[in-house]
């Protein structure tokens, strides 16, 4: 391996790491607020990429009717949840959020979809379709389980992942898709050439890290959101119910997922089941970051990306073995550092 190849591998690792980082950030966000390890995060990525690809092909993707169905189910779930304190305003709010919003998005999609919308419009539609799904999934699947153990929440997340992957196959078929890049530019940088797309990718990842860090570290709302995981009463006093905290964090996760999908789809082919493995790598990064720190998770994600890239060069058949065995020592190190001696409640 000479220096040029090493540079190319590092570049590849960083770009891949950026995808994992975006997933890791969402996982950290959702976990700190709701204690759910969001296995379906990878599905948001795939849905984002494939929805955009469908618009590019001039069709209306299956995610549009799915959005309507999820909205309707979430409406029912929200009404049941709020049955003890239902008034006209509340019903109106739920109906607006769960029925009118997806209805409007779907109407736009059906109106614009068949006419091959421009790339920017397609991206906007895609984000508008996938983002609310986060909130609806929270209302339908996780809100009723908010008191359950982390194990049960994790397993429920696996259930949601199975259902969404199955739907992905029905909507998009088994074959993959690509989308046109946001930028065709190729910038020479010494022996490397950097594509405009990968700069978009890395830049947006950094922006999201900074935004999340600022939101949770600096704003009162962010701090209150973090607090819901440990102290529900305190958060409620701040005017944030666990329902809202959950919807908000899930929606942000879905948004980041769809955005990552849009960013990655021009770089590689995305399949209905791509989400699981990249979700897993994001999970690795999130865990190495202790499911708490955004910069640590992002750094770990880039590390995973680089190990993967170098392993693909050195021993491609054993790439996953190398990646996953490499994380065991890291886990041991993290675990030893984080080890709580006392298990006082």
């Amino acid at each position: 391996m000479d220096a040029t190849i090493l540079m190319l591998l590092l570049q590849d690792g960083v770009v891949n790491g950026a995808i994992y980082a975006l997933i890791a950030l969402s996982l950290v966000l959702v976990f700190t607020v709701t204690r759910v390890i969001l296995i379906p995060q990878g599905e948001f990525v795939a849905f984002g990429a494939l929805t955009l690809a469908a618009f590019e092909a001039g069709t209306v993707p299956g995610t549009v009717p799915l959005l309507l169905a999820l909205g309707a189910a979430a409406c029912a779930a929200d009404l049941v949840e709020a049955r003890h304190a239902l008034d006209a305003r509340r019903i109106l709010r739920i109906a607006l959020r769960d029925l009118v919003l997806p209805g409007a998005v779907a109407a736009l999609a059906y109106a614009l979809g068949p006419g091959k919308p421009t790339l920017a419009l397609g991206i906007a539609l895609t984000l508008a379709i996938v983002t609310p799904m986060g909130a609806y999934l929270h209302s339908i699947a996780f809100r009723p389980l908010e008191k359950a153990s982390v194990l049960v929440l994790l397993v429920a997340a696996v259930g949601v992942h199975l259902a969404l992957t199955g739907l992905g196959l029905v909507f998009f078929g088994a074959e993959g898709s690509r989308t046109p890049p946001l930028s065709d530019a190729m910038l020479p940088a010494g022996p490397l050439s950097v594509s405009g797309q990968s700069l978009w990718m890395i830049g947006l990842t950094l922006a999201i890290i900074v935004a999340l860090w600022a939101f949770f570290g600096l704003t009162l709302l962010g701090k209150a959101l973090m607090a819901t995981a440990v102290n529900r009463l305190g958060a409620r006093l701040m005017g944030i119910g666990p329902g809202m905290a959950g919807r908000l964090s899930f929606s942000v996760a879905a948004f980041i997922g769809a955005l990552s999908g849009v960013l990655v789809a021009p770089l590689t082919t995305i399949y209905y089941d791509t989400g699981f493995l990249i979700g897993l790598k994001g999970f690795v990064a999130a865990i190495i970051g202790g499911l708490a720190s955004y910069p640590a998770a992002a750094a770990a994600a880039v590390l995973v990306g680089i190990i993967e890239s170098v392993a693909a060069f050195e021993a491609s058949a054993f790439k996953e073995v190398i990646v996953f065995m490499a994380i065991i020592p890291v886990l041991l190190w993290r675990s030893a550092r984080a080890d709580p001696v006392e298990d006082e409640e």
Binding site: L8, L9, D12, V15, N16, I19, V264, L267, T268, Y271, D273, T274, F276, L277, I278, E308, S309, V310, A311, A312, F313, E314, S316, K319, E320
Partner: peptide
């Protein structure tokens, strides 16, 4: 692997 996002290596 089928779902690998990069085969640069």
């Amino acid at each position: 692997a089928r779902t690998d996002t990069s085969v640069t290596g």
